[in-house]
Design a binder for these strands. Structure first.
Lengths: 211, 211
DNA sequence: CGATTTTGTGCAACTAGTTGCACAAAATCG
DNA sequence: CGATTTTGTGCAACTAGTTGCACAAAATCG
């Protein structure tokens, strides 16, 4: 729904080829939108067919050759229209949170390592964004454009900070948890019997695949 | 990728029919996973076909009749396996952040109202989660299961708090912005000329549709 | 300078989620 | 008690994103 608009935005900021776009998405767009090179090329084709962008004149190369695109007036208008239109926020879907909730009924064996790994990933991401902030938004510059872009980076940065803190908190909680974690349904009729269900040992090697 | 596991988790916590699941997803699962009733029914069918869940014996009703499901041992094992398996966090994609970045080049006309609307939505959500916290996690209860589930709710709650603060910050920034917002490319050659581009007026009524 | 690696573009098949309905049974309403 | 609404289940078509390749041109390497 909004990949085309992400590409339009990037191209208005600076005309680019598919690969350049891919790099810019990885580098300085990733903190609010991510996309693979396959998605980008596909969408560039559609946007060109729709008359919203065009290949920069001058080069007319075939497969395996750079081709840069720029935004046409129609593209700019579409982007302005989309930006102003009301949109509902999309509901949350976070696998790690789900896994933790699942762990409450099925046992905590194994997640802790991945929590730790995620913590590292988020810490690294956070550090990277802080670099970007230092580089792209030094105290001096604060044109309206800069302030808006800085605002967006702050969101990405603060979200990473949030996850970092949350994961630390979660790990601290784990440290206080008894033994190998719970595996029963609190609402089931079984009383305070501290049973150790089979999940941890039996499922074991993780052989089972779905479908 | 993880809707089936969300359903398994919910069903382990308490066997339910499709509609009951839908309600529980809306109510107390929405802060980490969301799903429509169509998704849920479809997935219930698959899970049953795969032998991970089964209809509760006792009733054998046709279309338009309640049918409750419970998790089979194979389902519990699959859930335990999935929960423990390492998974990469999925990259961020947030339309509002993208729109703000787009607004930096294409003009801010129109977004402010939607920022305000989002702020209200997030405030309402936050209040709702605080209710849930008060109701489901009173100071007394802190079995391991509760602590894990509380941790998950805290994430949902703190994320809403984050967005609320961020949107307030964004709106404050808007208040300081000159006139009708920027609409030029900072990197383009045009100097400090405070031009007012056509985007606001020309694109206007929002007629243009893609495809 | 031929072989190998890197750069750049792209297709095809798949998975996950969304939108728009359809329809039967049960409950409610005049 | 027939008509209408609500409850509950589900199909079909679509949109968005992912995964796994293919392949040509250019650069590099022995």
């Amino acid at each position: 729904m909004s990949l085309p608009h992400a590409i339009l935005t990037a191209l208005v900021e600076k005309p680019s080829s598919g690969l350049e776009l891919t790099r810019r998405f990885d580098k300085s767009i990733a903190y609010f939108w991510s996309a693979t090179h396959q998605q980008i090329y596909r969408e560039l084709g559609k946007l060109e067919a729709d008359g919203l962008i065009r290949a920069l004149p001058g080069e007319q190369p075939a497969r395996g050759q750079k081709k840069s695109y720029e935004v046409l007036p129609a593209g700019r208008e579409e982007l302005a229209r989309w930006t102003a239109a009301a949109q509902d926020p999309k509901p949350l879907r976070d696998a790690m949170l789900l896994r933790l909730r699942a762990a409450a009924v099925v046992g905590t064996t194994g997640i802790e390592a991945d929590l730790r790994r995620h913590l590292e990933l988020h810490e690294r991401q956070l550090a990277e964004y802080e670099e970007i902030e230092k580089r792209d938004f030094p105290p001096g510059r604060d044109s309206p454009e800069d302030r808006l872009r800085h605002l967006v980076l702050r969101a990405g940065l603060d979200l990473e900070a949030f996850w970092t803190r949350w994961l630390e908190h979660a790990l601290a909680e784990f440290a206080e948890l008894p033994g190998d974690g719970p595996a029963r349904d609190t609402r089931s009729s079984s009383p305070a019997r501290p049973l150790r269900t089979g999940t941890a040992s039996s499922g074991g090697a993780g052989t089972r695949q779905r479908r």
